[in-house]
């Protein structure tokens, strides 16, 4: 289930051009993150995939098939969608929310509910919450329900629009880890939208940094982008220039851990170095475990 954007452009009826000319191929079974500041066209792009937005020019293809030829309602039922503030139906219980798409596609209610219970387990929600209404859940729990709902019909594609944008940093951290685990288990083709560069680097195997108008500032793996920012804009965006990510090891006699400080001299994290020797996690994206968690997102 690869997704391809071919020279898409979107001008809204009021004349706003949200996306100018955007082409990207999203590989299957991995997570691609669109990251950029507010108003740069992320949501517009994401919604082109399930036809909530139709491009003014160009086309979006799923496995080589133009989505413009697929009936929108049918298309949406086979694509999971999770958004900020969960967008759960407030008048339906947690269980019925999760069962939404299977019920829409004709699964008998009892069976859909039974399967929804299993989905709750999968996203780490206690079954005792099944009969609550969304308004009776915490923000983090609501987001988990949103993820369970997005996965309930076992779609090949999962679209996530700033799903963790409105929860506190600790809960966000949990949800991100949970998503990484799910992604390892399920291997969905996931398109994730965020304005948080840390989140983008943590979750994405491919990261697309966007500028206003859906212009691609850089596309690549987190490691590539961190190591070789394509422009000052990107360097600034990932925080490399301001030293947020340029970390130096500081000698400390604190066991086997060496303290890392950023260019401003502030402690940013630790790295294991038994007997003064660094543990190298091997080349590639894994080395980003060094990146600090408390740093709030190169102020995207």
């Amino acid at each position: 289930m690869s997704i391809e954007f071919r020279h898409v452009r979107k001008t809204y009826p009021d004349g706003t051009t949200a996306v100018e000319d955007f082409s990207v191929t999203i590989p299957s079974h991995s997570t691609t993150v669109f990251v950029g500041s507010s108003g740069c066209g992320k949501t517009t792009l994401l919604r082109m995939i399930n036809r909530m937005v139709d491009p003014s020019e160009g086309e979006v293809l799923i496995d080589g098939e133009p989505v413009s030829g697929i009936e929108p309602v049918a298309l949406r039922r086979r694509i999971g969608y999770v958004m900020q503030n969960s967008g759960l139906l407030p008048h339906r219980t947690v269980l019925d929310n999760v069962a939404t798409v299977p019920v829409l596609t004709g699964t008998p209610k009892a069976k859909a509910r039974q399967e929804a219970l299993a989905q709750l387990d999968r996203v780490g929600l206690d079954r005792s919450l099944a009969n609550r209404y969304p308004g009776q859940l915490s923000g983090g729990q609501q987001q988990r329900v949103g993820v369970a709902r997005g996965l309930a019909a076992d779609p090949n594609i999962l679209l996530m629009d700033e799903p963790f944008g409105a929860v506190d940093p600790i809960v966000r951290d949990e949800l991100q880890q949970e998503l990484l685990r799910l992604q390892r288990e399920l291997g969905k083709t996931t398109v994730f939208v965020t304005h948080d560069i840390d989140e983008a680097f943590l979750l994405g195997s491919q990261v697309v940094i966007l500028q206003r108008g859906g212009i691609i500032a850089q596309i690549g793996s987190p490691a590539e982008i961190l190591a070789h920012p394509a422009s000052d804009f990107v360097a600034d965006f990932v925080g490399a220039k301001r030293g947020k990510r340029r970390l130096t090891a500081e000698e400390r006699s604190a066991g086997d851990d060496v303290l890392l400080v950023d260019a401003g001299g502030y402690p940013a994290g630790v790295i294991s170095a038994p007997d003064g020797r660094l543990i190298l996690a091997g080349a590639g994206p894994k080395s980003r475990s060094v990146s600090n968690k408390t740093d709030q997102a190169g102020d995207a």
Partner: peptide, 13 residues
């Protein structure tokens, strides 16, 4: 509007 959009995204006709 959020709920309406999210319902549309799930595939409500």
């Amino acid at each position: 509007a959020e709920v309406r959009q999210s319902a549309t995204a799930q595939g409500f006709a």
